[in-house]
Computed example of a mutant assay.
Amino acid sequence: MSTGPVTIAVVAGEASSDLIGADLIRDLQRLNPGCQFVAVGGRHIKATGAELIQDNEVFSVMGLAEVLKDLPRLLKTKKQVVRTILSSKPDLFIGVDSPDLNFSIAKAMKKHGVPVIHYVSPSVWAWRPGRVHKMARFIDGLLTLFPFEVECYSGTGIDARFVGHPLAKQIPLQVDKQRSRAQLGLSDKKILALLPGSRNREIKELTPVFAETVRKLNTSDEWQVVSSNVSEAKQKQVAKLAAEQQLELNFVDDTSALLQAADFALLGSGTVALEALLSKTPMVVAYRISPITWWLVKTFRMMQLPYYSLPNVLAGDFLVPEVMQNDLTTDNLLTACREVINDPQAEQRMMQFHHIHQSLLTAQPDQAARAVLNLAESLC
């Protein structure tokens, strides 16, 4: 790719991909000041100076059944995004995570001759592995966050490259929890991070059971319970649901900073579980999807692994407790939390967290941006 004016379209459909996309854009801006960006994203991508053509909040839907319910609205918005991107005459399209959204946009880009790079491999090692061959029809290059993912694309024609995980370079290998606590202005009491997720369904499903569990766990008031979310509106939503369970929450704006300060975390599945691992924070991961989605997953055997949280996938074992679906009750959560908090092998578990953290680092911190520029040389 030349160092002159180049237009890159970036679509980051979720809160986690907004962080990753913003990190990539900043590195590309530094390596090639001629790059201009049109993007779908959130506040982090907006802060890079990219032209935000659509806020990603509109795509904040989780689960097969939930997507079907909102399908007309999603399709209309997606078509508008495609039209707006194409009108900018992009030299390259980069979809960040969110395969259900980005793959359909990528197909449209490919049809119009725009080279496609996808950043963050879908979980083909755990969920519908046959997708890799379909992906080869519309994806030219793929940037993976985890080293083992590159092999999944061997022989497909997709140029897959491990670029490390942005969070692994942003969070220090050695986390100073006392200092992190002071920077957030929190008290010296032990901190319990309560993080049900950023999607509306996650908040509604997980906050009540999380709050009831923590209230029963914290009877002696030894924990300061702190939460965080992507917007003030969602913080208020979480606070209201927690208050209904007689639990008062404190809030901070930065989830990553909270996890680096926390002594324990109760959280929903997703990137936040990886953030907890990188922050060397003991955790319990919980999740519940709609009964219809769960029935589809079980009936058609869509899950390839016995665990679903990123810490366990990376460890290849049950490194952290998972409480899912029908098992997600206050009693079960309470038992899991107490086992982790009183774990006699906590130090060994933290060593495993440390080793996984090291495995997600690359020699160059801007490896993803360098890979994009390298791939673009042959694609554009």
Score class of each variant (00 low, 15 high):
residue 47 A to L: 09
residue 118 H to Y: 11
residue 39 A to T: 13
residue 107 K to V: 09
residue 30 R to L: 13
residue 54 Q to T: 06
residue 49 G to F: 15
residue 41 G to M: 01
residue 66 E to G: 01
residue 116 V to R: 03
residue 100 D to I: 08
residue 56 N to W: 01
residue 114 V to R: 00
residue 32 N to V: 14
residue 35 C to H: 12
residue 114 V to C: 05
residue 51 E to F: 00
residue 96 V to S: 06
residue 81 V to C: 01
residue 34 G to K: 15
residue 84 T to V: 05
residue 39 A to F: 09
residue 113 G to M: 13
residue 65 A to D: 08
residue 72 P to Y: 09
residue 67 V to F: 02
residue 127 W to K: 10
residue 59 F to H: 01
residue 106 A to Q: 02
residue 89 K to N: 08
residue 85 I to Q: 00
residue 92 L to D: 07
residue 97 D to V: 07
residue 114 V to W: 01
residue 48 T to M: 13
residue 93 F to T: 09
residue 44 H to D: 13
residue 84 T to G: 00
residue 32 N to E: 14
residue 105 I to V: 14
residue 86 L to V: 08
residue 105 I to S: 03
residue 42 G to I: 12
residue 34 G to D: 15
residue 103 F to G: 03
residue 65 A to V: 03
residue 49 G to R: 11
residue 111 K to R: 15
residue 72 P to N: 10
residue 119 Y to Q: 02
residue 103 F to M: 11
residue 41 G to D: 06
residue 79 K to I: 02
residue 125 W to K: 06
residue 102 N to R: 04
residue 92 L to M: 14
residue 130 G to E: 05
residue 126 A to K: 02
residue 47 A to G: 06
residue 38 V to D: 01
residue 35 C to T: 15
residue 64 L to Y: 06
residue 34 G to E: 15
residue 36 Q to L: 12
residue 109 M to V: 04
residue 121 S to F: 04
residue 72 P to L: 07
residue 69 K to N: 07
residue 50 A to Q: 06
residue 48 T to A: 14
residue 90 P to Y: 06
residue 84 T to F: 00
residue 75 L to V: 14
residue 39 A to L: 12
residue 121 S to H: 03
residue 78 K to I: 01
residue 129 P to M: 04
residue 32 N to R: 11
residue 109 M to S: 04
residue 77 T to F: 00
residue 129 P to V: 03
residue 86 L to Q: 10
residue 30 R to V: 14
